[in-house]
């Protein structure tokens, strides 16, 4: 009973840590990006200052805003918080991982996106509708690729539970699986699309014709904007942590001792910093795509994940 209690407390602490660390990852990415592009970089703590400022600000709502518009930030943030709670960050075998598996995780993302798109349409401006329409198109194409990649991994590990899959990869050791390589590439491409990064979307722009995600949340301000921004930072971190868990989980704590947890925390920090640098490199060498090139990009991601699955069936099961 006692160990159960400790596990639950740890799980809650991990979820809170996840949510608290998400802006730091965003800050790190922004900082590295500025350095790489020879610009003066803001501090890595800047996102916290932005959030704090937004949380304090008085809000202006559009006249036509309905109750749905006011509920959406909470729904989006709540969905991301729940999603963060089920992803193993510094330790596996936490009880929260059993609440939701990788399919439910995708369901949380879909829930957040559904309501964000509705909020975009609530005010009745062309921007909101445009953002919603494009975001739903992009996500409709990204979701199959994402699930296909996840299916490849979960068929290998014979589970859809994130924590158990992570442990499976740990136990299997350093085995080179071609299917994992394909899945990793597909997952990386989907991450880029789903987290509104270049080349699919540009998180830094407010140019009218290039916005996707920003167009939907254009009418938000103050604490609602803070919640939504924070939620998208958490989303980026979830994708990054899922990639880390599936493909290089080494270092993650498998027992709840202080030493193991410390190693896990250090390991995951290092890995996320590395991933952040890779993301920045990717964003720096690529330019934003035209909207109707995005289907080809995501089609390629889907193809990669199908190839990964077929490789798994043909090469790795040996039946």
């Amino acid at each position: 009973m006692d160990s159960q209690l400790i596990a639950w407390v740890l799980a809650a602490a991990q979820a809170l840590l996840f949510v608290a660390a998400a802006p730091l990852l965003a800050g790190w990415v922004k900082c590295v990006k500025c350095r790489l592009q020879n610009r003066a970089a803001p501090s890595v703590w800047q996102p916290y200052r932005d959030l704090a400022k937004l949380l304090k600000k008085r809000m202006v709502l559009a006249e036509n805003a309905s109750w749905l518009f006011r509920a959406v930030p909470y729904i989006v943030f709540g969905a991301m918080l729940l999603a963060a709670a089920v992803v193993p960050l510094i330790a596996v075998r936490l009880p929260t991982a059993a609440i939701a598996d990788v399919i439910v995780l995708v369901g949380f993302f879909a829930l957040a996106r559904f309501f964000t798109a509705l909020a975009g349409m609530d005010i009745g401006t062309a921007f909101g509708g445009m953002g919603a329409s494009r975001e739903m198109m992009v996500s409709a194409l990204a979701e199959p690729a994402l699930l296909m990649a996840a299916f490849t991994l979960s068929m290998t590990a014979a589970t859809t539970n994130l924590s158990i899959a992570t442990e499976y990869v740990l136990q299997a050791g350093l085995v080179l699986r071609p299917s994992f390589l394909f899945a990793l590439l597909a997952l990386a491409m989907v991450t880029v699309a789903e987290c509104s990064r270049i080349p699919v979307d540009n998180p830094a722009t407010h140019l009218e014709l290039t916005m996707l995600h920003e167009a939907m949340i254009l009418e938000y301000g103050g604490r609602y904007l803070a919640l939504i921004e924070w939620a998208s930072q958490i989303k980026l971190m979830i994708y990054a942590v899922v990639i880390v868990d599936f493909f290089l989980p080494w270092g993650i704590a498998r027992e709840f001792t202080a030493a193991a947890l410390a190693v896990g925390a250090v390991a995951v920090t290092a890995k996320l910093m590395l991933l952040g640098v890779l993301l920045v490199a990717w964003e720096t060498v690529l330019a934003k795509m035209r909207l109707f090139r995005v289907p080809q990009f995501l089609g390629f991601a889907f193809l990669l994940s199908v190839l990964g699955m077929l490789t798994h069936v043909v090469l790795e099961t040996g039946g």
Binding site: F114, S139, L141, M148, T152
Partner: peptide, 17 residues
């Protein structure tokens, strides 16, 4: 079967749209 499942995911995402 997994490809059918991926198509189901596509259908579900389109239904949300």
């Amino acid at each position: 079967i997994p490809i059918a499942a991926a198509l189901l995911a596509l259908a579900a995402a389109l239904a949300a749209a």
